[in-house]
Design a protein around this nucleic acid. Sequence first.
DNA 1: GAACTCTCATTTGTCAAACAAATAGGAGCA
DNA 2: TGCTCCTATTTGTTTGACAAATGAGAGTTC
Lengths: 263, 263
Amino acid sequence: MSIKYDIEPASLSVQIADAIREAIVEGRLKIDERLPTEQELADRFNVSRPTVREALKRLAAHNLIRSRRGPAGGTFVNRPSEEEGRAELATTAALMVSLDVFSLPEVAEARWQLEQACIPLAVANRRPAELDTMIAEVRRQEDPDLSDEEFCASDVRFHRALVDATHNPVLRFTLATVIEGLQPAVNMAVYRFRERAPLVDQHRRLYEAIRDEDVSAAIEVLSEQMTYLRASYDRAQAWREGRDQLEDTQHLTIAGEKETGAV
Amino acid sequence: MSIKYDIEPASLSVQIADAIREAIVEGRLKIDERLPTEQELADRFNVSRPTVREALKRLAAHNLIRSRRGPAGGTFVNRPSEEEGRAELATTAALMVSLDVFSLPEVAEARWQLEQACIPLAVANRRPAELDTMIAEVRRQEDPDLSDEEFCASDVRFHRALVDATHNPVLRFTLATVIEGLQPAVNMAVYRFRERAPLVDQHRRLYEAIRDEDVSAAIEVLSEQMTYLRASYDRAQAWREGRDQLEDTQHLTIAGEKETGAV
DNA sequence: GAACTCTCATTTGTCAAACAAATAGGAGCA
DNA sequence: TGCTCCTATTTGTTTGACAAATGAGAGTTC
């Protein structure tokens, strides 16, 4: 299969997208610089405008470019922000776990090890802002009226604050995969199979350990939480596999498939 | 800025892409299932075929779909593979470091902590295959005739084998960001500022520690390597910042911008 | 009857020309 | 000077068409 991709040339829109992408990565197109107009690009590459537009949409899908209409408009090179990159990592990861590429216990083990790796730096570099966020989320999680969705979201924010406390952008970036991508999807898959109280208690103790600069205590709490979660994950994973047996063959209906009318 | 995105509706191609993406994620479109033809989609969404195609290209950019021509052709939902997901993470990360979103010392610190996190699992789960790969790469790195590019590539393969040894797909997936994305770019940025011999020696001792199931020794070697690299990174970072001062304003020339002739 | 070749219908890939919509800048005017 | 309106530019979208790939079936030959 991969051989086929080598011998037969990629479609024109792919070639053009790659060429522009390369120009951006190598710095020939600088950040915030304006690209030629679509018509000019079409002329230069000897293709039609729709083909150029397909290429640009490929790049836009990765947030490499932005477009504006009007005389001062055009297509511009986007400055890659850490935030947008994190979002892309997160959606990629969420897709994979939602389509069962990863099993829940695997996610649990990975998250455990990765968050553990953050503890020493978090203890060393944490600032009041992150501590405030953590304890605020703990208090929110203690509210029994909190919806399941909000509890899961708060859980994610708590763990993100832990990673933020390292004050290392690369760690924050990399762990977006598990914290903002995998964990939300996992949370929604398992929230029926666990209790809130133990988690909140663990969060509070984790906060206290970070606050008191006690690395080993923090690691201990984290291990405890992951041991607890692993049991829930096992139950949820079993349920997931059972569910797959009797999945109903839903007919294809794509959302938004209707009269858009006001075109 | 974000407000603007909320009030003004996204372009049609974005709306359609999101709708189809949602259908995939929610399972209404199953893996390897065939989507309606482009003309059918255009009719259903009440848009033209080029608009549908732009939407499909957005999804294709994320490897969510594939297309084939012919009677049995069409557009199909891709099974997301761990490998493709890793590639996407890696390219995203490589883009960010090549455009100076991250500083080299930050990358060093993150990589150190993250690889450390892999050591316990690697020691517990390593198999002969990974050990063989590691020692093979060490031997290759000892060859003084090896080109700089090949040495850097071997370095990446060695560290990837370390992560592979954990036999945890989520860890392998997540660390692709640093191992396959950041590290190659960093290597090319710093290879002039370090010696090979210490690195190869460290790699050999790291291999031996993993082989002998000695966690603390492995972590020790890793710390040593990161301490050594940090100095190189600092020098390279200083050079990078100096280079930015006098960057020449290259004129825009996009590669492949020529007569494609055989269209 | 089996196997081979050829034609054909289907579907994506690409092109061409046009209109719609947004918008910045300038002409005209008070 | 400052306001309004017009206009040119550029992306967004439509329509219609042709090119290229390719699987399936008809027809032919052994």
